[in-house]
Design a protein around this nucleic acid. Structure first.
Lengths: 215, 215
DNA sequence: ACATTTTTAGACACACTTGTCCAAATCGTC
DNA sequence: GACGATTTGGACAAGTGTGTCTAAAAATGT
């Protein structure tokens, strides 16, 4: 008879803890050093794990890399959907609510650890793993953009916005969000809260000048 | 007595030709493989030059990399200024002229070989060479944004646009320009002419909805 | 044509990494 | 406490890449 206090996840506990710790460390090192420059010994040390354990779990460097990207993509994707679910569908103050939403988007998705890592890995190694990143593109940006577009379409339907092409509006919203932070992010720096608010405010103001429904 | 037919550049001809050929090949390989993954033998082969020549010219891998970034930054910068000098200061058809300008910006600066390479190198290795990329930032984006902002300010002064903060408008113009091509560029793909036109048209239409002067 | 500089090809030492193997230690569970 | 599975550390072979050195070949300028 099984005395499962809780139907725990299949693999045992310590095993799993090490697994995520490896992924975490590998993500950091792959990002810092690139695929070729990443050193498995260093990843092992940073994960607090022996090198052999990494080989036990993932086989070789390439499979480890793939596992890292999949994990990051999954998390980042989940973060996007969760944040988009807080979109202001019935805003009291449209501008303020959209600004707050943009700030959430930044801190939960674009500027957080996983988001930054994933973006960097896509840019650096995208051409080396076409199928891997094609998959990311379809599961990630395509879906999240569509989700965001649906929310904007709803605001338009409610008469608050004047939007022809909701998909385009969603893309432009995201582009404007990033306008002030492009270079900062490019160099791997972390903008502070104030910068996030400023960037979001600037973006939303311009977005509303372009798309706010007349009247 | 010197019979200089033309006051040629100081270093001899073949020497210089090899120098640029090395930079060219190195740029390509550094971008494809990253700094750590780049192989000097491969660069030499791709440049049609012996490995020793590279060491003669640049000393070691790191100095070669620095030379590549400097060269790309210089060229890209020059391209930006040249293209910005074609900004429509006295437009006949504001929308059409701005769209054409945006297309030029894409094909001469953002999507061309040097621009793509430089962006990728900044993103991949920016954290490893803080001073190098800090220099790029000041000589590049800062200056080009200011130059573009000045042009927008002029259009505003002429009563064609309604702009509070020309610097912000310039950043947002560039951000909108890229809105449709973000993912494509991220994966290192080259958008075709039609995509460039579409992206530029979408961007300029929204930009003008936000900033066109009333009346 | 000659003198000087540059380039070339190859060999070389050295360091570093990956991935494997194995015996001992540790962990989780009954 | 004992059992099986996992982890560990260390040694190891094989491959790869950097940077140096050399002598011969080519190019350059006068």
């Amino acid at each position: 008879m099984k005395t499962d206090t809780v139907p725990d996840i299949l693999p045992p506990r310590g095993h799993d803890a090490k697994r995520v710790s490896v992924i975490e460390a590998a993500a950091a090192v792959f990002c810092r050093e690139g695929f070729a420059g990443a050193n498995i010994d260093l990843i092992a040390a940073e994960a607090g794990v022996s090198r052999q354990t990494i080989y036990n779990h993932h086989g070789d460097k390439e499979h480890l890399f793939i596992a890292v990207v999949r994990e990051l993509a999954e998390r980042t994707n989940a973060g996007y959907f969760e944040t988009i679910s807080t979109f202001p569908d019935q805003p009291e103050d449209l501008e303020a609510d959209l600004i707050a939403f943009a700030v959430r988007l930044h801190s939960n998705c674009i500027c957080n650890r996983d988001g930054k890592f994933l973006r960097k890995l896509v840019q650096a190694e995208g051409e080396r793993y076409p199928e891997l990143f094609a998959g990311w593109r379809e599961q990630g940006p395509s879906r999240t953009w569509a989700a965001l577009a649906a929310r904007f379409a709803r605001l338009a339907h409610a008469g608050l916005l004047d939007i022809d092409d909701p998909d385009l509006a969603a893309r432009q919203f995201l582009a404007l969000i990033n306008a002030d932070l492009q270079v900062t992010m490019m160099l791997g720096m972390q903008p502070d809260e104030a910068a996030l608010r400023t960037a979001s405010t600037n973006a939303v103001r311009t977005f509303l000048k372009a798309f706010r429904a007349p009247g």
